[in-house]
């Protein structure tokens, strides 16, 4: 008898839910003026931005990005731009 049903989930199982499909907009990381401040990583509500302080190359995971635009709004040097998702 499996009593987990409906009451117990496996750790991190939400990864199977590709929330990227929510997005109407998507960020474009321009890789021009980036200072490696990491603010976009801090502020991304989904935790989908990754990158390297040294190379200053940052990017995001389209599978889960919801296109909120916070990263673009908060990037101090406007190195991220939001564009419409073509659906």
């Amino acid at each position: 008898m499996d009593f987990k049903v409906g009451i117990i989930s496996m750790p991190g199982a939400a990864l199977s839910n590709k929330t990227g499909s929510f997005a109407n907009e998507t960020p474009v990381f321009k890789h021009k003026a980036c200072t490696g401040c990491n603010l976009c990583i801090y502020f991304c509500p989904e935790g989908v931005i990754y990158g390297d302080k040294k190379t200053k190359i940052y990017d995001f995971d389209p599978d889960y990005c919801k296109g909120c635009g916070i990263c673009a709004e908060e990037c101090p040097v406007d190195d991220i731009e939001m564009v419409l998702v073509e659906k």
């Binding site: 199977s16 839910n17 997005a23």
Partner: peptide, 8 residues
């Protein structure tokens, strides 16, 4: 990630 919170 993968949760269903609102965008933003």
């Amino acid at each position: 990630m993968g949760h269903t919170g609102c965008s933003g």
